[in-house]
């Protein structure tokens, strides 16, 4: 059962310089209860896609079903079943969190008593007890973000859309936020579709990642598979002296793809191989070089992202269309 099915969705804007394809035809499915991340740089088309899927923006072409309703013919049906938390949030600065939560319930046609009860429940669930009666403008970024997400969940939506949920939050607020998002799925089976340009966020939170670049989905898999697909380890060797000589001898090793000198030593891109470290040490020892330390890192989603988006830049026909 799919919560979100997207088929060839596009959005083209007219500008002075011609047509700009913000979203150049994306297709994907999101299963019920899945947390899927939309990963891409600023301007890649993430927000535009999200705004189309949440009925805020009319697609230029393509179709989508969201929470069982057709986006183009039944926008009201979609609206009843989804929650959306925009990048900038959506709370009125002068209003209190509690009054915003009650209003939100009323906007979804709850009666006053139900809306008040639901607001109390969310305040508790999102640890907002001490903050709920203050004007939202006095809340910190992390606190306001929790309130934003509570607002998005007021009507117990089937699908929750989060646009850059942790942008501009400190590390503690971020992990707290992730905790809340995970709990939402765990407790209510809510499907979560979020956009982010933080790779660690996608890694920490998502079952599946769609990498979007220049308005197209260029990769789609679990974070683990995406990382495995890259298949390279990064070996960092710290050296006091002899960096040049070390570079020369190690570059000859068959597993080494690339050697880069850096301030404190070398950084090598190496085919994944469990024995490679021992061989490196032996080679260095034979050459009379003693490293200060040697470290191996599995690729991060950052590396995957860079490798994929670099590759896609070189493919023809992926630049924004200028007519």
């Amino acid at each position: 059962m799919h919560s979100v099915q997207v088929q060839d969705l596009t959005k083209t804007y007219k500008t002075k310089n011609g047509l700009v394809e913000a979203v150049a035809g994306v297709s994907f499915d999101v299963a019920q209860g899945e947390i899927v991340g939309f990963l891409g740089q600023n301007g890649a088309g993430k927000t535009t896609t999200l705004r189309m899927l949440t009925t805020l923006l009319k697609p230029t072409s393509g179709s989508a079903r969201v929470a069982g309703h057709d986006l183009s013919t039944d926008a009201q049906g979609v609206r009843r079943k989804i929650g959306y938390v925009a990048q900038s949030g959506g709370t009125s600065p002068a209003a209190s969190g509690r009054s915003e939560l009650v209003l939100q319930g009323r906007l979804y046609q709850m009666n006053q008593a139900d809306a008040v009860r639901r607001a109390d429940q969310l305040i508790q669930e999102f640890d907002l007890e001490d903050l709920a009666d203050r004007p939202t403008v006095t809340l910190s970024g992390g606190q306001r973000r929790r309130l934003d997400i509570a607002l998005g969940l007021t009507h117990r939506p089937d699908v929750l859309f989060l646009d850059e949920p942790s942008a501009a939050l400190d590390p503690q607020s971020r992990s707290l936020l992730w905790e809340h998002v995970r709990k939402v799925r765990e407790n209510y089976g809510t499907t979560v579709f979020l956009s982010t340009h933080y790779l660690d966020e996608a890694d920490a939170l998502c079952d599946r990642v769609l990498i979007i670049d220049k308005g197209r989905v260029v990769a789609e898999d679990s974070p683990e598979n995406l990382k495995a697909q890259l298949g390279y380890d990064i070996v960092t060797i710290e050296l006091a002296t002899d960096a040049d000589r070390a570079e020369a001898v190690l570059a000859q090793h068959p597993a080494v793809q690339e050697v880069k000198a850096q301030a404190q030593g070398l950084r090598l891109t190496v085919e994944h191989n469990d024995r490679v470290l021992l061989q490196f040490l032996r080679t260095l020892d034979e050459a009379g070089i003693e490293p200060l330390s040697i470290q191996v890192e599995r690729p991060t989603l950052d590396d995957v992202f860079l490798s994929i988006t670099n590759r896609s830049i070189n493919l023809p026909g992926q630049q924004p269309m200028n007519v």
Binding site: L56, Y84, G90, T91, S92, L151
Partner: peptide, 9 residues
């Protein structure tokens, strides 16, 4: 503040 957009959803 995004209030209009929140209501339009």
């Amino acid at each position: 503040a995004g209030v209009i957009e929140r209501m339009r959803v």
